[in-house]
Design a protein around this nucleic acid. Structure first.
Lengths: 150, 150
DNA sequence: CTGAATCCAGGCGGATACTG
DNA sequence: CAGTATCCGCCTGGATTCAG
């Protein structure tokens, strides 16, 4: 039986080595630093959804508006402009008589898609956990004065 | 932990597979769905910074306020309450005469730390790219393409 | 020290109407 | 179809003050 080498191997092969250690040494806690500014731009509700949608390929303005349920034309165009400005999204304009505009991810945008997808996946995997916590929190509203063990 | 796990199970449980494909099949584009609501909560500027700070261990209120440069006491306590409600952060209160409160990540919060760290790392690695794109965008919009944002 | 309460400006975001 | 402009309520977020 060669079951003697399992745990060590897992630890080596499993890890996205913690990015936490690298993050710790970055000045990301300073609101003025560039990294923080960028993080603020991409950690946005509509931005994430637009990136998600565009990972499926280039799409027209109306397609995006239809897919992203609840977004207004104002927010859509505003965020698309922002994403174009930061270099995450490319804008193609066809000079046809019925105007047609396609939006697609740049290579930079594609490199961001995967991290954002992981984040979205986390949200989906922990829906029940979060909802349970919220329900418990709201139920015991006043009694949170001291720590209750799990 | 079960002792009868084989290596194959571990391999399939840690997929380097793109999360994009899995995201595509989730109804995340619907603003009403639960996953989207959660994503909206965690994809927040201060939330991310607080999670980062707490990955270094439990910290006091004043420590957090000092480390996260630029945050006001209102935003700090507001986001801490939100994180506590969603089950990402735990709050310890010492019944001492000078009040002391420690905040720390729950296991759920720790599971979110790594994805958020990846996101923060991306921001740092692409500072120059984003800045270059912004500069070019602002410069070229002057040269009369069609419409110029203020 | 850890908040709560209040005021207030600015931005987010929706609705609507309009253009080319 | 792909936006643009305007009005406007609401929330975010900072500053200040006060309380336990």
């Amino acid at each position: 039986m060669n079951s003697n080498l399992n745990t060590d191997e897992f630890k080596i092969s499993y890890p996205p080595q913690p990015a936490l250690d690298r993050i710790a040494n970055m000045g990301i806690f300073d609101t003025q630093c560039a990294g923080h500014q960028i993080l603020e731009k991409i950690a946005n509700k509509w931005t994430i959804l637009i990136i998600y949608a565009l990972t499926q390929g280039k799409k027209r303005y109306s397609d995006l508006k239809q897919q992203i349920v609840g977004i207004s034309s104002k927010m859509l165009i505003q965020n698309l402009r922002n994403l174009e400005r930061t270099g995450l999204v490319q804008r193609y304009v066809y000079p046809t008589v019925p105007p047609r505009v396609d939006y697609s991810l740049t290579p930079l945008g594609e490199s961001l898609a995967e991290p954002l997808a992981v984040l979205g996946e986390w949200a989906y995997q922990h829906i029940s956990d979060v909802n349970a916590s919220i329900e418990q929190y709201d139920h015991s509203s006043q009694s949170g004065d001291f720590w209750q063990p799990k």
